[in-house]
């Protein structure tokens, strides 16, 4: 291991972190714009051209806001909870490749941070620990609405994690590898959404529930829980929860694009390897549009329906999907 290799990894990690945080700022702008258009409004249009400076104005506002800590709150966990929420969101995309190997500065550089042979398992691991921040935020606030929101989030995320894992096993079986780079490379001629339509659907539904987005945003239902687990948070700590949610939106779009939509694959990739990140970016923007569209269209569903849907429909469906996939892969010899 030489110094140049370490620098390469550090630079790639920093790029991923910067892209994710900048992406967070502009996904909020994108969501507000798209939602506004769907509701026949204009959306943010004052700060900068087409409101493009709006995220920066929001950030400045949130930084200068007063930070409140409730008197009876558990102070240590109350301050730690937003951090615990953001870290899994930032590290989950480490295994997603953004392009093939490119030649730069006389070196062959793979456009991915970590091409490990357990990429998909790594994603499930990080997903499984990402529930802690929300749970602890709800508990440490010492507020009944926040606690209820935290409990709802815990139950919901544990329930949908199973279906998510089962849906991710489809592409793994087809590619014969848990490495996301291998899965993307195996989709050079045919995207897995064609072979795994049910799996892709389960993945989308389960991930929306995992990141607590509408119509599964029960943990932060405004009307019944005022705001759920982050009701006591203000200023930058509040912003960190939003940052985690929007970064997770980008992350699930990236992972979904890699698993089912061919990731960075596209025409002319072998001649122009730099097209890889652009193809991935386009697919992520399309998937993000889908997420916002779903939020604008569907009403929030009732909590007991949410749980019974997860356990009685989504989970059995994902098991059947997995069994059929396994048998077909075995018979065809994939």
């Amino acid at each position: 291991m030489n110094a140049a290799l370490i620098w390469e990894w550090i630079i790639k990690s920093v790029i991923v972190l910067l892209v994710m945080t900048a992406g967070f700022a502009y996904v909020t702008w994108y969501e507000r714009k798209v939602l506004a258009r769907m509701q026949a409004r204009i959306g943010p249009n004052r700060a900068g051209w087409a409101g493009l400076l709006q995220p920066i104005a929001d950030a400045v506002k949130l930084i200068f806001k007063e930070e409140l800590v409730p008197d009876k709150a558990d102070k240590v966990i109350f301050i730690l909870a937003p951090v615990i929420t953001v870290i899994p969101a930032l590290i989950i995309t480490a295994v997603v490749p953004w392009g093939p190997t490119v030649h730069l500065f006389g070196r062959d550089i793979a456009l991915s941070v970590a091409n490990i042979n357990l990429g998909a398992l790594y994603i499930l691991t990080v997903t499984s620990i990402s529930v802690y921040g929300i749970t602890l935020a709800g508990w440490s606030s010492n507020n009944k609405y926040a606690t209820l929101g935290g409990l709802r989030a815990t139950a919901q995320m544990i329930s949908y994690e199973l279906a998510l894992g089962m849906a991710m096993l489809g592409p793994i079986l087809l590619a014969g590898s848990m490495s996301l780079t291998d899965i993307v490379n195996a989709q050079q001629h045919l995207w897995y959404i064609v072979l795994q339509p049910v799996g892709a659907l389960i993945y989308m539904v389960a991930t929306i529930a995992e990141i607590n987005r509408a119509p599964f945003d029960m943990p932060e239902a405004e009307q019944e829980l005022t705001a759920g687990y982050h009701v006591e948070y203000s200023g930058m700590k509040f912003a960190l929860f939003f940052m985690a949610e929007y970064i997770k939106m980008i992350a699930i779009s990236m992972i979904g694009a890699s698993l089912f939509l061919g990731g960075f694959q596209g025409p002319f990739l072998s001649t122009f390897p730099w097209l890889g990140p652009i193809y991935l970016f386009i697919k992520v923007v399309v998937l993000l549009f889908g997420l916002i569209w779903i939020r604008a269209t569907f009403p929030r569903i009732r909590y007991d329906r949410l749980m019974s849907f997860g356990w009685k429909i989504l989970f059995p469906l994902s098991v059947v999907n997995l069994m059929v996939t396994a048998v077909v892969v075995r018979l065809v010899g994939g």
């Binding site: 490990i116 357990l118 691991t125 409990l151 544990i158």
Partner: peptide
Amino acid sequence: PFVALAQITVYAGAIMVLFLFVIMM
């Protein structure tokens, strides 16, 4: 690495979440 990731997923990610859930509930 497989054992390491399975350790976090199963113990930290599933069992302890339920423990916390019960304690809080």
